[in-house]
Each structure stands twice: as C-alpha cells, then as structure tokens.
Amino acid sequence: MSTAETTTGTEAATRTDRPRRTPGLVPVAETIGSAERHAPEPPPPGLPSPPRRPGAFWRLLGSELGLTFRRPRNLAMLAVVAAVPVVVGVALRMVGGGGDDEMSGLIASVAGNSLMLTFVSFSFLTLLLMPVAVAVVGGDSIAGEAGAGTLRYLLAAPAGRGRLLAVKFLNVVVYAYAVTAVVALSALLTGLVLFPVGDVTLLSGTTVSVTDGLLRIAVSVGYIGAGMAALGAVALALSTFTEVPIGAIAGAVVAVIVCQVLRAIPELAPLEPYLLPARFTGFDAVLRAPIDTGALLDGLAVFGAYTVLSLSVAWARFTGKDITS
C-alpha cells in the first residue's frame, strides 16, 4: 500500500464515520425546527420531564397581544385611523351644511345617512393609512425582536420557531381587525352624531333598513380585516429577512404604493385582480343589492392566497435562519 493510498483511505474512513450518530446527540438537521417533535431517547436524569402546558400557546399569544396593544406607537396608529372618519365627517357636514347642489353622489349619500360615513372612511383609509398601520406591526414582529436581541432569549426560553411565528401571525391578524373595527366604530359614532339615522340607500339605488345596513358594515369589516391580515402576513414574511424593523415595514408599505401606482396604469389592467391592495376596496360589494358575494369571495381567495404564500415563505425562512442578532 503506497503512502498516497493510505492517506486517501484515512480520509475516506473519517468522512464515512462523520454522520454516524452518537446516542443522545441531536443531529444537526433536527436541532432546528423538528427537535420539538422528537420523542425523548434516554430516561432524563435529574428533574422529571417538565410537561408542555396545554394553555402555553395562548399564554404566549396573550403576552404578545399585551405588548402590541400597550405599545404607545401601535395605540397612536389606532388613534390616527380613528381620527380620520371624524375629520371626514366634520368636513362633509360643513360642505353639506353649505347647501351645495353640486355635491357628488358619495358626499350626498353620507349627508343623507349616517351609516354611509363608514364606507366612505374605508374607501379613503384602505388606500394607505390602514395598510401602513398593519405593515408597522407585521414588519416589526420578527425583525423588531431580532433588532432588540430579545429574539434569541425568546427562542432560548424556548418559544419554538414555528410556535413563535404562529403567535406573531395571530397577533398581526388581531391588530388588523382592531384597526378595521376602530375605523368602523369611529365612523359609526361620528355618523350618528353628525348625520340623520335612517334607511340606507345603496349604490344600486335600493334602500335597506338600518339593521341591514349595520349587517353590511359588519360584513365589510370582516372582509377588510382579512385583507389587512393578508398584508400583515406579507409584512411578517419580510420581517423574517432582516434585523431592521424599519426595512420590513418600508418594504411592505412600498409594495402597497407600487401596487396603487400599477393600478393607475390602464395597460396593466389584467394584472389588477392579482394585486393585494387592489382587492382592499372590493368591500364596496356589500353596497350592492343583493350583496355581490362573488366579488367578496374572489377577494377573500386573493387574501387567502397571499396569506398562505407569505406564511410559507416566513416559515421556510424563519425555521432555517441563524439567529446571530
């Protein structure tokens, strides 16, 4: 056997023996992500195995929601979106008070009925302000923890990567619905104070009762909330790629703005049904009689697709990521 052969043989032996498992050791591939699902191999010495508590997920979600809804920045954004319907209502009231005959249809409908202010407010706010608020919470969710360094302690606790991601997503869903509900409530209250209450005249000219009108507002809140949650998922996915929260937030906001610009280009009209922000305004389907459920379901399908895609990307990225912050 020549020297060269011996060396090769040694190397080969070392290489083939590398992946062999030593009992009790966690293989590299299993240390991240799948380790939680692994059954215990040796009888644990020392303390008895601490049981996983059934309510633990909800406790972490509660902690997350507590952070989100106590954070002054997030509350300030809620206050801002709540203020817009008031401003719009007062402005319309002043215009309407002037007795101008050339009021547009929308303004006239608000001036004629308090419930319409909700839809008018949504049509303004879903363009940019509500998406920004949701993008801030979604974009901050992972990147903010990474930037502050708290992510490493959460994962060492161990929060579990998949579990933490699920909690972060549900948190942004709740915030998305909170933003939507706050706008609706603020608009309703403002409307009730400033404008007459009565039957609602829809876009199609049909008149429905106040109860029916409120129901339609509830449906639109459900629809817009789902849309905002989808945007939140996009922001969350971006958030797993950076340690700078402002980067993920800006990324999501820029995406919204770019989509709005694309919508304005007539040649790109075929693209429009697939753009997430283009679907936000689809809530006006509730103003048809009967409600255009087809349009609503189309929109929800787009929201669902964006959510699933974003969460897949977020999961793939986050469960395999080195946490070096």
């Binding site: 590299v28 240390t31 215990p40």
Partner: peptide, 17 residues
C-alpha cells in the same frame, strides 16, 4: 439552537433540544 452548525453534533443534558 440559535445557529445551525455546519457540521457536527451537540446535546444538552442528553436530551433533544
């Protein structure tokens, strides 16, 4: 478990992570 090793194995307390 914050950083995935390129190679090799590790265990804490002889348990899965």
């Amino acid at each position: 478990g914050l950083v995935a090793p390129t190679e090799g194995e590790h265990a804490l307390l002889g348990l899965p992570l």
